[in-house]
Design a protein around this nucleic acid. Structure first.
Length: 303
DNA sequence: AAGTAGTCCAACCGCGGTACG
DNA sequence: GCGTACCGCGGTTGGACTACT
């Protein structure tokens, strides 16, 4: 895939016929000597001045991730691992922000540790590394309540499946990069893993509440925490999402069947715990977020 | 010993933001 | 305002290494 992508768009190193791949000790020595003496200044001019056949980007990366004198290196301590887990619960995959809290560690190092080790450890403890929530043992199988039949036709929601009562405090982000910023009413910033649902806007003419069979068979209440919407069918810019706590979200692929026979879902549908008027309140929130804090399902979740 | 699968991590890629002419 | 170059970030890849069969 990497090679395929390379063919589509050649990297700067490729275009300039520069060296790529692992750094030799000689190259390290040259870069280290140059930066120690002159500082890096403009990265694009570093390779030229240091006598390296590399692109500036590659030099920068090598310096930041390997040559910098303040790097700690070596294995992570248990304290560091725990701190990373805690920070990830708050910050998500913002590796550079996490790394800023761990002196001598790079974002790349932390990212690798997370992907190769910490995720696994959390799963072994029965914690979902994405949500930092306890994992329900039974494999959830999505089912949908389609509120089209209740007259809520103009909006699509994808709710979170609240799996435990251990959720941490709510995070409502402000992100100028988010598609949400196109909607002045909302501050929540969906991150990359959330974009799937936001971009998956095949159908926005239904009001859909996914839940799970395992949840439906238990007494777990599933608040409609995550809402994806499209204000205007013809304008994807007016699409976004909001959530009480995006870390609590298990995204469901919302794929609505217009010609559904919804009876087959009724055994799993939690009509009693999800009264339509609460969903209406969520819809109201989308247009007026000041009502957000008065919504009981949200209140209980952020406590 | 040889082959295969899994793990780890350095490095690369592509994108968005910013600065500057 | 526009185009370009550069920087920084997060996601992904590829290969070295290790464990297993």
């Amino acid at each position: 895939m990497g090679r395929q992508r390379q063919r589509q768009r050649q990297s700067c190193c490729y275009k300039q016929k520069l060296r790529r791949g692992l750094w030799s000790p000689e190259e390290d020595e040259k870069l280290l000597r140059h930066i120690t003496k002159y500082g890096h200044g403009c990265w694009s001019s570093v390779p030229k001045h240091a006598g390296l056949e590399r692109c500036g980007k590659s030099c920068r990366l090598r310096w930041i991730n390997y040559l910098r004198p303040d790097l700690k290196r070596g294995t992570f301590s248990a304290e560091e691992e725990n701190l990373i887990i805690e920070l990830h619960a708050v910050l998500g995959n913002r590796w550079s922000q996490i790394a800023a809290q761990l002196p001598g560690r790079t974002d790349n190092e932390i990212k690798n540790l997370w992907n190769s080790c910490l995720k696994k450890k959390l799963r072994q403890r029965g914690i979902d590394p994405l949500t930092h929530q306890l994992i329900i043992p039974a494999q959830p199988k999505p089912c949908f309540i389609n509120y089209q039949h209740h007259g809520y036709d103009s909006i699509t929601t994808a709710t979170a499946c609240a799996t435990t009562t251990t959720s941490t405090s709510a995070v409502v982000h402000q992100n100028k990069n988010s598609p949400c910023s196109s909607s002045p009413a909302l501050n929540y910033a969906p991150r990359s893993h959330e974009s799937a649902i936001i971009n998956n806007n095949n159908n926005y003419n239904n009001f859909v509440v996914p839940c799970t069979e395992s949840a439906a068979s238990s007494s777990i209440v599933i608040p409609p925490m995550q809402v994806a919407w499209q204000m205007d069918d013809n304008d994807p810019q007016l699409t976004g999402a909001c959530a009480a706590d995006y870390r609590d979200i298990q995204y469901q692929h919302v794929n609505v069947n217009h010609n559904h026979n919804h009876n087959h879902n009724h055994n799993h549908v939690m009509m009693g715990t999800q009264p339509p008027d609460e969903l209406i309140k969520w819809a109201e929130y989308l247009t007026n977020p000041t009502t957000f804090l008065t919504f009981p399902a949200f209140k209980t979740h952020i406590s």
